[in-house]
Amino acid sequence: MGFEFTMDSFNKVLEDISKNFIFYAPRRIPGKGAFSDTDVVVYQEVEGFGQIELDEKSRFSPKEVINPITQTLFYFNENGYTEPETNNKGIIIFCRPCDANSFKRLDEIFLNNGPFKDSYYESLRRKVKIFVIECVQGFENCFCVSMGTNRFDDYDAFIRVAEDRITCDVKDNLLPAFVKHGISAEMRPDFISENAVKVAIPDQVNKTIFTHEMWREYSERCIACGRCTVVCPTCTCFTMQDIFYEDNHKCGERRRVWASCMIDGFTEVAGGHDFRPDKGMRMRFKAMHKIYDFRKRFGYNMCVGCGRCDDVCPEYISFSNCINKVSALSREVNG
């Protein structure tokens, strides 16, 4: 159902549903950019629509809302263990269509990628409702159209912001709050149909690509900082850490913390062997996972084309350009 709001009346909707939900949205944090006198846009709790940053792509993706960077799985002592209590409130994530599509990828990895569902992920994930914010222009480095992630129909609400008016299409049992504060209006979601950056995804990937010398360029250029993976909405790798409290080694906690296939140590095993010591090999692994390996298993590409990896690379390495190189090579090899 479609509704129209002023900023004030839309905030009243949020106020009403805030009894049962926490809102997460891209938020500009002044002065917290890495360089001095710069801001960072990051997913954080918001109270009103005015706190949402609409003019700049967030540096970090919304994945951290349901896949926390550091997550305590349980606390232990000599007698046993306890899991941390979780908040009962629902979660509403305001995000763009690409990010909305990323949750499906996270679900595959945490819920459908083996005999067990990840209960920590599931307990957060099932509370999530997605409010899609319409993209009109997109941002620099976006290539969602190439990935088919420009569209997202499974939203709980679709939000268009134009000239201080907010129009929404709402599908959900949240309707009463929208009915109460809004005016009925015609609303058909629109999605971006073209990005400046276009990426060709190879249908067939010949095995020779994996050993091709194209990756050597990245051995030279990449500095293994891992920024591309921590900002990626679909990267899910984590490591486990058992912490023994410093002043009482008999108690502690088990945490899981994000890990990155681009950072030193990721493929090191007992005995000291490192499967991918070379940065070009890491780039190949990451790139092929995003556009090939994941697809072999789940039937569609992992990458959602948000372009954040390109936004943040301090060495100006472009993932989209890398994929285009892979495609050109594939066409060459496959004839």
């Binding site: 960077i69 550091t70 891992g226 850490q241 912490i243 023994f244 913390v257 950072i263």
Partner: peptide, 25 residues
């Protein structure tokens, strides 16, 4: 927000004063 990548620790030792260390990851 820290993933324990150690980039800051290594770099502080290399270019600055070694003011950072890792403890419990």
């Amino acid at each position: 927000r820290c993933i324990g990548c150690g980039a800051c620790v290594k770099n502080c030792r290399r270019v600055a004063t070694g003011a950072l260390s890792i403890s419990n990851y």
